[in-house]
Design a protein around this nucleic acid. Structure first.
Length: 267
DNA sequence: ATGGTAGTTAAACTA
């Protein structure tokens, strides 16, 4: 049996219900994790997802900001929230599926505009979030688990279109890349997108300002960054079939500035 | 490419 999970920073769910529906109809993953829903829980039309074959859901909202959600074909048997770093924001949601797999859906703070906590409190908030996430996984090592989300960090050289330019910018600075590695190592997580494609350009986000659909992957004007991630615990990595970015969804009319990322497992 | 676009919301703010 193949189990496919998708993750997408949807950049406001309500104006993008039609693109979400298109993704689910075309790719029909078992689970879809969303970040940045920016919708109050009561405003999410669950019937739309039911009609698409996703009757099970878990939503963590924060009014019209942040917000994460999990939609599933199979029942969700357990959910948990965590207030990471005590920031009081809706950026993390856990769900255990009926097949036993635990899903960690995470939306790391973007981190301001200067990659230095003493000059930008936004970057300090990002670092505090990552430090707490690291400590939580160190204390409770995940098994039979998948972590997905917009982690707002492109850690490797090949995760950005211009390493020399971006190494001094938020999303690709050495400081935050090191902290992301610490989170991953604390949980013994494996980056499955890079397991499938260890080197070479791979991006998941392009600014609305700089997106150019005509530019091929890895071209110098393909101004993307791989900030959306899928990690798996070692016991699931041995079941990994494939992992990919659906870059075509970035071309759709009225879509998010992120592309959805996928991983499939032989369960 | 120190400009540019999009969403929420009604003037800036975040991304």
């Amino acid at each position: 049996m193949s189990f496919t999970i998708a993750s997408w920073n949807i950049n406001s769910l309500l104006p993008r219900l039609s693109v979400v529906a298109r993704l689910l109809r075309e790719e029909h993953p078992e689970v879809l994790c969303l970040q940045k829903c920016k919708a109050a829980k009561g405003d999410v039309p669950l019937s739309v997802f039911e009609d698409l074959g996703y009757p099970h859901s878990a939503i963590r909202d924060q009014g019209q900001v942040n917000g994460v959600a999990i939609f599933s074909r199979m029942p969700i048997v357990e959910t948990a929230e965590a207030d990471i770093a005590g920031q009081g924001e809706a950026r993390y949601l856990f769900a255990r599926l009926a097949n036993g797999i635990g899903i960690h859906n995470m939306y790391v703070p973007a981190g301001g505009s200067i990659p230095d906590a003493s000059n930008d409190p936004g970057f300090g908030k990002k670092k505090a979030f990552l430090a707490d996430a690291r400590d939580r996984f160190r204390a409770d090592r995940p098994t039979n688990a998948i972590l997905v989300g917009d982690l707002n960090i492109a850690p490797d050289q090949d995760d950005v279109y211009d390493h020399a330019l971006l190494k001094n910018q938020v999303t690709h600075s050495p400081d935050e890349s090191d902290m992301l590695a610490a989170v991953r190592e604390a949980g013994d997580w494996v980056d499955v997108l890079r397991k499938v494609q260890p080197t070479g350009a791979m991006y998941s986000w392009w600014s609305y300002r700089w997106w150019n659909a005509k530019v091929p992957v890895g071209h110098k004007n393909d101004k993307g960054r791989r900030i959306d991630h899928i990690w798996a615990s070692p016991d699931l990595v041995v079941r990994l079939q494939s992992a990919w970015v659906d870059r075509t969804a970035r071309d759709w009319k009225g879509t998010s500035d992120h592309a959805p990322v996928f991983a499939s497992f032989d369960i």
